[in-house]
Design a protein around this nucleic acid. Sequence first.
RNA 1: GGGCGGGUAGCUCAGCUGGGAGAGCAUCGGCCUUACAAGCCGAGGGCCACAGGUUCAAGCCCUGUUCCGCCUACCA
Length: 884
Amino acid sequence: MEQPDKGYEPRNVEKRWYDFWEEHQLFAANESDSRPGYSIVIPPPNVTGVLHMGHALNVTLQDILCRYHRLKGHNVLWMPGTDHAGIATQNVVEKKLAAEGRNRHELGRERFIDAVWDWRKESGSAIIHQLKRLGASCDWKRERFTMDDGLSLAVRTVFVQLYHEGLIYQGDYIINWCHRCHTALSDLEVEHEEVSGNLYQIRYPFCDHSGGIVIATTRPETLFGDTAVAVHPDDERYRNLPSESVLLPLTGRSIPIIRDAHVGMAFGTGALKVTPAHDPNDFEIGNRHNLPRPKVIDDNGRMTDCAGKFEGMDRFKCREAVVQALQDQGLLVGVEPYSHNVGHCYRCKTVVEPNLSRQWFVRAKPLAEKAIAAVQNGQTRIIPEIWAANYYEWLNNIRDWCISRQIWWGHQIPAWTCEACGKMTVSLTPPKTCDTCGHSVLIQETDVLDTWFSSALWPFSTMGWPENSPLLKAFYPTSVLVTGFDILFFWVARMMMMGIHFMEDVPFKDVYVHALVRDEAGKKMSKSKGNVIDPLTVMDQYGTDAFRFTLAAFAAQGRDIKMSEKRVEGYRHFINKLWNASRFALMHVSPDSADIPAGALTLPSQWILSRCESVARSAAEALETYRFNDAAGLLYQFVWHELCDWYLETVKPALYGKEGAPVLEQTRAVLWRVLKNTLICLHPFTPFVTEEIWHMLPGTRGSIMNARLPRDGDPGFGRFENTEAEQQMAIIISIITGIRNIRGEMNLSPSLKLNALIHTEHSQITETVHRHGDIITHLAKLEKLAVDLPGERPRAAATAIVEGAIVFVPLEGILDLAKETQRLEKEIEKLSLDLSGVSRKLSNDDFLGKAPEDIIGKVKAKHAALSEKQQHLQINLDKIKAMI
RNA sequence: GGGCGGGUAGCUCAGCUGGGAGAGCAUCGGCCUUACAAGCCGAGGGCCACAGGUUCAAGCCCUGUUCCGCCUACCA
């Protein structure tokens, strides 16, 4: 005989339903739909990428939002796509070539770019498949790529317009140069890292070779590019110098001593070597003093002819050699260990060199001002708000954005230089003639644009801009951008700038900034550290739903999420619990269960319906405010500890009871309704298992994705909310728990039937026990249950005190008197501690005079309850003691 | 140098506008009870980093100290 599945097996289920969703186009947005629109553009993963934890969190949160809004009845667009990731991708393909013993220079630009496209074709969709594994409900038919024709047109259009508006310019400036990637980098693409090096003190002698000025540097090899020594204008030490110039060591070149306020008098000797071509400050100083700016390190990291006999030497080798030479000549005054920050390439970690070169820049200030204003005036909300401060900070101090890169893979800058007059023509398409002189031979700029330039246009370029497309009309601005804080500046701020400039509206109404996923120890996951947890492995092992639920439950954490498989395992148990509870429910419900028959519902049914509606509402509220963890927690608590622990247990007698009884039909109907609504509420978090159960649930048709959330505004929603039922159920639960507690503490076998007597003065309790005593009898495994006004107490009884009542479990003959004495004493001690705290408050006139009424009332009630409880226990304790 | 976040149970973390300290995991005890041992029932466990302050009342607000982490920066 075929055994039913004991546990939930996600493997086949996930594949099956994902295919089903795609097949039925359930992810498709419709630009001519009248329903309220909801849109998200995905942060495009790099084409080189493989799914990591960061993607998993980011994509899961977006998917939860999209699925939630679909269940709300919205017309949802989740725009997917990938990023060409200029330097990163070029590096990957170059590495591949290197493995074959080739390099891009042999191939030439065109063939190299073809090779990159080929590579993208064969492996670029890996990341997309992995997103699908996660359940991502993107509208895949609309998938875009930052280098596809449409987006490339958008890039050129933006470039041309900004150029003509004077917001893009070309100029000679100090930029960050990576010798390995052989390109300029923007300031953001440089990672500063503390490195321990040396601070060298070098004497620059006066021209008569006497004395001199001692300067300090961490990069002695750059001295060949020095064109001055600078001191502070107010520095007394350098007031009357024997000479106004010094000899540059190892060269014999004479350089002037200049006065510039940039120099810090307190640092070292207060004298600074000025190397305009290789240091941003020195560059500024050089400009102020009209100094020449010779380059001493070339684009490959080797010394130029300026370095004399060191020409051609590697920059770091040269450093050693220069130090040695200086020492030989007695010009090295001192060396001290010095730790300082050094810039590294964010892609290949090579030490970057500040380097003078001709680059393209975006004038950022005017764009930034509007981006700041848009957040200040609430057009875009940043959530959590704390990140707005970082956003302002960066934009307020923004510097011009270096957008040109000396690589091949990317959008080639649409600028052409005239062979005849040397003037620039910037145009959407290759110009036939020079704008200035009309000459017809023009050469295109070889540089490509920073990858983030095209990313900055993503919210509107993907929707068809520069066309005024129906998609833009329907879905721009997008509802929310979900992203990690690591790209707040790289991406979010720049999308804001570009969106406002070109669309005259912000790109998104909300920005939800989530944490970064780290390993168990809180370290960044990286291949080199070997601490990477692969999301695919986790999904294989625990199922995608369990993984997604974990991510959602973690989403609240501040800046870090420490991922551990242990946690995922816990949530796998939850998925399995849901699975088993559903299996149980499915044994009892039928298509006829869809309508709840007229007639009074049993208390547990009233209660669970009330709870279900309340949880649905709270979970929805949590999602509306991006409190993913709260929503997940509410549903978890409800399913496990209310639906399973209490409701399913209370209704078993009815479900296994007499066929045809009204209570049976009723219970089946309630079970059906609660299960159905629970599945819908859970679906955004755990799409696969809920879809699977949905199809097993009689009376449902089609995909759960077409269902509607139970929520405010629905006809009939709220009609089951019932505070009285919740109160009565709370009484029953506390009585049962009290009796179970006695059983546990006394080590009484679960199979031993007990009697219980409840003393209470509260008619609500008396009535509840009278009407629903069967539930207590069943779940506390009682033989007899009675309720009475307080009076004669049974002999040798264990006691449980609950709010407003006292429960006796007579244990004549089996009560361990010593044990019960101990238990009661411990309990009383705990109570007196609580009680003394409360009493202190009530005897405090300040408290009584200043605290609000409701608080005082609460404390008084608390006091009464505690002392009543203590009294009861004390009486019992005395009684037991008398028996010993 | 500037800024930000965090220090709550053994572990990982919740704790919203101040009003009786929570969850999951782990631990201990009892249960194969007919959806589930990936389970059920129960228990123990916290000077909420430290020191002050504001308040009738502080995990929460203010000040300082300390430890950890991150971001940012042109002192060579």
